[in-house]
């Protein structure tokens, strides 16, 4: 485990890969069935599949929801990294509880509720993967704004996507400086590996010193430019908000998407009451 962790931080872990996956996830699939949905419809959809499974313990119904969100996730063509993280997340949320319960002498009666819990977690996570990874970030932030989320959040979302490639490149260069100039301890033996891990953690902490200073310079230009571009003016103007949201339009396809989801849920409910 130690070994894996230390290797994943600097060696195998390629910043280019990460950057590419995040961008691909955000913009590379902007023509999928999910990406072109109206964000408001999709957020409502998420509200259902993100909440309802928590309250239901019926296995047939949960399975039905699970299959639906799995299909939508596939339709959204989510990047591999996100799916991997999803799997990791599910395991760390309930998988570990399962092991702990067994250790403390739980039996089958303890396992079943945990399995149901796992199914819930999976369904809810996939629903969020569909909506938040499937939607184009700008559409997402517009949708959130329509529901009254603060302007600053929707600004932060678009800005984050804008900044990420630059920040990563800078971080990569700083880490590279350490790699080229530093002298990591040999890591063949177990104590060596621990020393190597400590060294890497230290490098990462230290690398935030230059990063903070460099990013501070950037932030200043950005905020000055925002002031000139009337960001503050817009944040307090209802008219501007209306203009920003004018691009949102619900099409028949959006309604059909909602209706099909509704039909699916109804069918699973029927099945669960029959079975």
């Amino acid at each position: 485990m130690l070994n894996k962790l230390s290797e994943s931080i600097l060696d195998k872990f390629s910043m280019d890969f990460l950057r590419n996956q995040v961008l691909k996830n955000a913009y590379g699939n902007d023509d999928t069935l999910i990406a072109v949905r109206d964000p408001r419809v999709l957020l409502l959809w998420y509200l259902f599949f993100g909440l309802v499974p928590w309250f239901v313990n019926d296995i047939v119904f949960l399975l039905g929801c699970f299959v639906l969100v799995m299909i939508t996730t596939l339709l959204a063509r989510v990047a591999g990294l996100v799916l991997f993280l999803f799997a990791l997340g599910v395991f760390s949320q309930t998988g570990y509880l399962l092991i702990v319960t067994l250790l403390f002498g739980g039996d089958a009666s303890a396992i079943l509720p945990l399995l149901v819990l796992t199914l819930k977690v999976t369904t809810v996570s996939l629903a969020s993967v569909t909506v938040f990874s499937g939607l184009d970030p700008d559409r997402l932030s517009n949708g959130l704004m329509w529901y009254g989320c603060p302007e600053r959040l929707s600004f932060s979302i678009s800005y984050a996507y804008r900044m990420l490639p630059m920040l990563m490149e800078e971080f990569q260069n700083v880490l590279l400086s350490y790699r080229l100039r530093g002298n990591p301890p040999a890591h063949d033996s177990i104590p060596g590996k621990i020393r190597y891990l400590i060294y890497q953690v230290k490098v990462i902490v230290h690398s935030f010193y230059p990063l903070m200073l460099n990013t501070a310079k950037r932030s200043r230009t950005t905020v000055e430019a925002l002031e000139i571009k009337g960001y503050r003016y817009a944040a307090s103007s209802k008219e501007v908000r209306r203009m920003k949201l004018a691009s949102l339009k619900i099409s028949y396809d959006d309604l059909i998407f909602a209706a099909v989801s509704f039909l699916w849920v109804a069918v699973t409910m029927l099945l669960s009451s029959i079975l």
Binding site: M1, K4, L5, S8, I9, F13, L18, V22, L85, L88, S92, Y96, R152, S156, Y159, A160, M163, L164, L167, M168, F171, F208, L211, M212, T215, A216, R218, S219, R220, T222, V223, E224, L226, E227, R232
Partner: peptide, 28 residues
């Protein structure tokens, strides 16, 4: 506007950092 700068600065840096935490396998 200085507050906005601090907000932007912290958001970018901590956001980037948490992106990596998400990738570090939970350490058990």
């Amino acid at each position: 506007s200085q507050k906005l700068m601090v907000f932007v600065l912290t958001m970018s840096l901590y956001g980037l950092a948490t992106l990596f935490t998400e990738l570090i396998p939970k350490f058990q």
